[in-house]
């Protein structure tokens, strides 16, 4: 092998890592800007450039009218939607993997379709249904919740199903062999082993619901969620406190993930 080939190979080896690094930077650039802008002291409301440093936004994050109310609504909806979707989806996943029933193919299709449908279609069709049912004037918290459970459900099914499918039946047989009846086997063995999948599904649901703008926009009535608040204020100029919320959420998520990582490491030591 000559020098040129060696050089080529050296570059190729590092190329992927280099490109990967660049992509990561691309992914984190906006987060960095969100963090930066949370300290912005804008001279005009429509400014998107960093104009001056201030702690004010962090000292008083709730000063923009309605922002913290919208945040509370979003958290409530995300929390309830997560519980609803996780329970319904987990049951479906168990049925799909562990039980026999007629109509497996249409069921799978029904689970798949919401994931293959653009949000704008789901949002508008729900609105079409609600308004034809004469509910257009009563939309609000409940209709957002109903919609969020609907589009989170498929993601829960897929996530839990994957975990369940990878679960070795021998653990449950071993439990039965060791005097655990069906109920005990489920709660002592099956559930703890599937739990990481259920937790992942719940986290996914929470972030999907909390982040949703499009479907919510069609069915929100008078309820304002955090994404709706951001959208509304984007027309008039974004208050920098929005970035405080964004940064805080990112930090909480990071902390959560890091601490579970540390916990796992300590456990396996």
């Amino acid at each position: 092998m000559n020098r040129l080939q060696l050089l080529g190979r050296w570059t190729a080896e590092r190329m992927t890592v280099f490109v990967a690094g660049v992509v990561l930077v691309y992914m984190f650039l906006p987060i960095f800007f969100v963090g930066l802008m949370s300290f912005n002291d804008p001279t005009s409301r429509l400014a998107y450039e960093f104009q001056g440093f201030t702690w004010d936004n962090w000292r008083d994050p709730c000063s923009p009218v309605g922002m913290c109310d919208s945040l509370v609504s979003s958290l409530q909806i995300a929390f309830l939607a997560t519980i609803g979707a996780t329970i319904l989806g987990t049951l479906v996943a168990f049925a799909l993997i562990r039980h026999r029933f007629r109509g497996r193919a249409p069921t799978s299709l029904l689970i798949f379709l919401p994931m293959a449908t653009p949000e704008v279609v789901m949002g508008s069709s729900l609105l079409a249904l609600f308004s034809s049912a004469g509910l257009a004037g009563n939309l609000g918290f409940w209709s957002i919740l109903v919609a969020h459970i609907m589009f989170c459900l498929s993601f829960v099914v897929v996530t839990v199903k994957a975990r369940l499918a990878g679960l070795d039946f021998r653990y449950e047989q071993a439990a039965m062999d060791l005097y655990a009846n069906e109920w005990q086997t489920f709660w002592r063995v099956t559930f703890p082993l599937v739990f990481p999948g259920i937790l992942a599904a719940a986290l996914l649901s929470f972030s999907l619901s909390f982040d949703d703008y499009i479907i919510t926009n069609f069915n929100h009535g008078n309820t304002i969620t955090f994404p709706m608040f951001v959208w509304g204020s984007a027309q008039r100029g974004i208050p920098p406190q929005v970035n405080v919320v964004g940064t805080t959420m990112f930090l909480i998520a990071l902390l959560l993930v890091l601490s579970t990582g540390l916990l796992q490491r300590r456990r396996s030591r």
Binding site: R170, Y171, Y179, T185, P192
Partner: peptide, 20 residues
């Protein structure tokens, strides 16, 4: 008889030790 009602125990192939 259901498995958990039998005074019989098994050492499984690949052991099936509960990972949790």
């Amino acid at each position: 008889l259901r498995p958990y009602k039998r005074p019989v125990n098994t050492v499984f192939q690949n052991y099936a030790l509960f990972p949790h």
